[in-house]
C-alpha cells in the first residue's frame, strides 16, 4: 500500500460512519488512489455478502418455555445449594456449641442462687421477673 490512509477509515467510509467533511475528503482521495479504490470495492463486496445472507433458521417455538423452565430450575438449584450448604453448617454448630460454651460449676451455682433469690422474692409478694409487687397485679385483676 503506497498511501498512508488509515485502512479502518475505509470501512467507516463504506458505512457512511463519518462526518460529511471526512466523507468528501476520503472520496476525493479514493478517486485518485487505485489501492484504496480496490480496498473499498473489497469491503463493499464483503458487506454485500453479509447483508445478502439468508435468514438463519427459525428459533424453535418452544424456546421461550424452555428458557422459563431453565430460569426456574436455576433458582431452585440455588435454593437447594443454599440448603445443602446450610445443613453441614448447622451440624457443625450443633456439635460444637456445647463445647464452646460449657457450663462451669461456678456458673451453675450462680444460677441456683439466682433461682433461690427469685423464689424468696415471690414468697415476699413480689414478681421475681419484673420486680413489680404482686399486689399491683392483684389490683389489675380485680378491676
Amino acid at each position: 500500500m503506497s498511501c498512508n490512509t488509515s485502512q479502518s477509515k475505509l470501512s467507516a467510509y463504506v458505512d457512511g460512519e463519518m462526518s460529511g467533511m471526512e466523507m468528501q475528503a476520503i472520496r476525493r482521495h479514493v478517486n485518485h488512489c487505485p489501492d484504496c479504490q480496490g480496498q473499498v470495492n473489497d469491503l463493499k463486496s464483503v458487506q454485500m455478502v453479509l447483508r445478502g445472507l439468508p435468514s438463519t433458521p427459525e428459533a424453535p417455538a418452544n424456546l421461550p418455555d424452555r428458557i422459563t423452565a431453565s430460569i426456574k430450575t436455576t433458582r431452585r438449584n440455588y435454593l437447594r445449594y443454599a440448603i445443602v450448604m446450610a445443613i453441614p453448617l448447622c451440624a457443625v454448630a450443633v456439635i460444637f456449641y456445647p463445647r464452646s460454651a460449657p457450663i462451669r460449676a461456678q456458673d451453675r451455682d450462680l444460677v441456683i442462687h439466682r433461682q433461690l433469690a427469685k423464689d424468696q422474692l415471690f414468697d415476699a409478694g413480689t414478681d421475681s421477673t419484673s420486680g413489680a409487687s404482686l399486689v399491683h397485679y392483684a389490683n389489675l385483676e380485680s378491676r
Partner: peptide
C-alpha cells in the same frame, strides 16, 4: 470501526481462499 474493518478483511481473505469463484 477497527474491529469491523479487521473482521471484514479476515472474512474476505477466508472467502478468497475457500470459495474464490462464488466470492
Amino acid at each position: 470501526r477497527s474491529r469491523i474493518h479487521r473482521g471484514r478483511v479476515q472474512l474476505r481473505n477466508y472467502l478468497l481462499k475457500t470459495a474464490p469463484e462464488s466470492y
